[in-house]
Simulated assay, not measured.
Amino acid sequence: MAASTTGLDLGLLVLRLGAGGFLLPHALGKLFGWFNGPGLSGFADELRGFGLPAPAPAPLLLAVLQVLCGVAVLLGWQTRMAASVAALFLATTAVLALPKGWFWMRGGVEYPVFWTLALCAVALAGPGALALQSL
């Protein structure tokens, strides 16, 4: 690794670890109910609460896709595609939270917008040299 790119590659690693590392527990909570998550039935209820359809197997497929995106971003594999899909998830969450305002402590868009932007940065910049797809 060239000295001029070491900082950039480390920065991209930190960004990927943060973005994938924060996404993954939320996804696992939806899929398995881990980390006090809602599990699949609770996730389906959340979708319906936003006025979205949630027929089986849609919640399962969405949760699995989110888990795969989190793992892929974390490891740096198919990073641009995984980060783009994950950003779409978070952007959708932000749109659904718009009626509650800006601040996340009131259920607003602040948190999902932040992670949408972080994932967009990963999608645009790529995984860097310290990634599975760079091996």
Rank of each mutant, 00 (worst) to 15 (best):
L130R: 00
G101T: 02
W115K: 06
Q133H: 05
L117S: 06
L130H: 02
F103I: 03
A91C: 10
W115R: 07
V109T: 15
L98S: 13
W104H: 13
A121F: 06
V95S: 08
A131R: 02
L96W: 10
A129P: 07
W104P: 03
V113M: 11
L132I: 12
L124W: 15
K100G: 01
P112H: 01
G101F: 08
M105V: 00
T116H: 08
A123G: 13
V113F: 01
A91Y: 13
G126M: 04
A131S: 15
P99E: 04
P127L: 03
A91R: 11
M105Q: 13
L119P: 08
W102Q: 04
L98G: 11
L119R: 06
L132S: 05
L96V: 05
E110K: 09
F103T: 12
F114M: 14
F103C: 05
W102C: 03
S134W: 00
M105N: 14
L117P: 00
V109E: 12
G128C: 04
A125E: 05
P112E: 07
P127G: 12
L130D: 03
L132A: 14
L98I: 07
A121S: 15
A91F: 10
G107S: 08
T93P: 09
T92E: 06
A97Y: 05
V122C: 04
V122S: 05
V109N: 15
G126E: 08
A129F: 00
F114H: 04
Y111K: 11
V95I: 13
G126W: 08
A123R: 14
T93S: 15
A94P: 04
V95Y: 07
V122E: 00
M105C: 02
G126D: 06
L135W: 02
F114D: 02
G108P: 14
W102H: 05
P99N: 04
L135Y: 00
P112G: 05
P99F: 03
W102L: 06
A118H: 05
P127V: 01
A118Q: 09
V113G: 05
F103M: 13
G108H: 04
Y111G: 03
F103Y: 15
Q133P: 07
G126F: 00
Q133V: 01
C120S: 10
L132Q: 08
T116V: 05
C120M: 12
L96P: 13
F114E: 03
A131D: 09
Y111C: 07
A121E: 06
S134H: 09
G128Q: 05
